[in-house]
Nucleic acid binder design. Structure first.
Lengths: 348, 348
DNA sequence: ACGTTTTACTAAATCGATTTAGTAAAACGT
DNA sequence: ACGTTTTACTAAATCGATTTAGTAAAACGT
């Protein structure tokens, strides 16, 4: 089978005896008040007939716009990030943007590698979940002002930038208060060892409420790499063993909670009778678990919409350095059985 | 802050008084036996010094290779596909390929839209999970031979193509035999209503084993869109109600199983005492469930590796139309409590 | 000693679009 | 009636690489 070469604007130009300039104007909707209706019709009909589509690489080379957005997630296989990816995808495609994904694994070196890779390529925008210890790199990237940069799931205090995040402080405060109000006296916190705003705020919200209520704060911090490993589980185990008075656990992420639930099961602790559980980030798992696990759920759809629409808006404004897109959304406390107080007489 | 324009090969040419031809040869490793060592050194040193990186868009325009692979998943937010995406990503980047993702939602129209979108753009390869009723479009795409096309998670009998799939027939046969061997007399099958090879083979494997053992086949097929809806759950409910003799359920996908587990819980049926459960596709949920759910797990890492390495190999061979990459991997039966036969005396 | 081959390069074309800087003819204004 | 503006276009430059088709000088062969 003979390969037929793709048709170019030059071919059309020759075929119709019309300059490429004119054709380009027509394609790009700049023909109004410049080109006669007859010529417009002739060109449009021909384009329709042969199914011509401009070569996007050539357009990118000439205009510097690639219609490409890089989504640098912490981990694209994490249900939270893949759900966000899915929602963003649709809106991006509707606006003829494509999305390239990658995962930092919360590792600085990997993020840097990916960033250098994409800075060289033409990319219009970055949606980034910056890893640990990446503030300087992010600040530099943003100051360069070559692409739209949207920060997701965390943010920085020290400089101006676009971001979409959950109100983690507020969520954590509400979560902790809720557990105390349910009558749990000794709420423990299982968090990530991290300087990222997200985990910091979740810890601080908990600490703040415990302090307000003159309760002793008890927390354990697991590092990102350990969460899914025996080491991580062991850390939580030791935390619980050392603090037998704990009657309730607030987990800062869903991965921590999953490790925690495995552990509690192994330890033979009953939820919520022996220890109640509440975690950040919903997953279908949690609703189905026995007992169903209470969560602070992030508004995934809303977050994804703000992320992609904010990014597209900024792209349209064409990098005006002073317009900022900053959204802080509220979490939703979903009460299920795992955080319920079982009254003493019922428990027996 | 003044934006400094990116340096081009022409700038280097002017600066060093060396033609762009020579520089291009050096950059692309074609300098051997052509260009003197001194010039090579001079150019390489300068490139190193100013940190020059060729503009990839220009390269794409000239060479026709974009170093881009499109991963068209059924649904990128599905844990199976996002796990595959994650594993492929790393290898792709190591080989300086980038991946654009999209989801067909198993809808023909959407897949067609996405395909037309990407066929116009320069894309080197497609990794596609074709939706329902998309055979002709796939055959055409493959025959055009413009990009490497890798089919994933399903395949076609009628024409030659590259694919990576699970041995679904074998897996289903083993799964059904296993349930019968465990003493379950009436195994029911909950599948997808679909002409895709994957779901067809899973059904046929079940039917084959039931026939071999002179057992009555009982199955319900739910359409893709209904799986996560009340309608889907209702269909399974009616199936179970109409067939009270069923003592074991084989689910063809993890989404079906999740809907099924919710239903069994609502119906108050005990697993595995009242009804045993086995499902395709592992998820962390299943291990943690009470009781832990037995699964036929797909070798995700292995699949992803074959997919991306197969694709990269085919890309290197530069579209030789006759070389085919076809891998059929075995599933792994993971026995957990949900499929165990509880002996009568223990049951009481 | 002189034709041929090899070495070490370069000028210009090319990929396929957009954009700048123009022009000829028609219409307008007074 | 004649200069000016508007209309409707086009030629050529440009984005930044790679590649084709060459060439001048050195080395080689007999």
């Amino acid at each position: 089978m003979k390969e037929k070469r793709k048709i170019s604007i030059k071919d059309i130009s020759k075929k119709l005896g019309i300059s490429t300039t004119t054709i380009s104007f027509i394609i790009n909707g700049k023909a109004e008040n410049r080109i006669s209706k007859e010529v417009i019709k002739k060109v449009e009909d021909y384009i329709e007939k042969v199914g011509y589509k401009p070569n996007s690489t050539a357009q990118t080379l000439r205009t510097g716009k690639s219609k490409t957005i890089v989504f640098m997630a912490e981990d694209i296989s994490d249900p939270f990030f893949s759900a966000i990816a899915k929602e963003m995808e649709e809106i991006a495609f509707e606006n003829s943007y494509k999305i390239i994904y990658c995962s930092t694994e919360n590792k600085k070196e990997r993020a840097l590698e990916l960033l250098t890779l994409f800075k060289d390529r033409q990319v219009d925008a970055f949606i980034i979940t910056p890893p640990e210890d990446f503030k300087n790199e992010m600040e530099e990237l943003i100051k360069e002002n070559k692409q739209v940069v949207m920060v997701f799931d965390r943010y920085y205090d020290d400089f101006e930038h676009n971001y979409v995040v959950l109100d983690n402080l507020d969520s954590s405060i509400r979560a902790t208060r809720y557990l105390l109000n349910n009558g749990f006296q000794n709420v423990g916190f299982v968090g990530l060892k991290s300087d990222i705003s997200t985990t910091q705020e979740r810890l601080h919200g908990y600490q703040q409420v415990m302090a307000e209520n003159a309760k002793k704060e008890r927390s354990v911090l697991v590092s990102f790499d350990e969460v899914k490993t025996p080491t991580g589980k062991k850390k939580i185990y030791e935390f619980i063993s050392r603090n037998p008075q704990i009657d309730s656990l607030l987990f800062a992420t869903n991965s921590l909670a999953i490790t925690g639930l495995k552990l509690l099961k192994e330890m033979g602790l009953k939820i919520p009778e022996d220890i109640s559980v509440l975690t950040f980030d919903d997953r279908d798992l949690f609703e189905l678990y026995s007992p169903p696990i209470s969560v602070i759920s992030q508004p995934v759809s809303h977050l994804a919409n703000e992320l992609i629409e904010g990014t597209l808006n900024l792209l349209e404004e064409d990098l005006k350095p002073n317009s900022r897109f900053q959204k802080v959304l509220k979490g939703k406390l979903v009460e299920r059985t795992s955080s319920q107080r079982i009254s003493e007489n019922n428990a027996i």
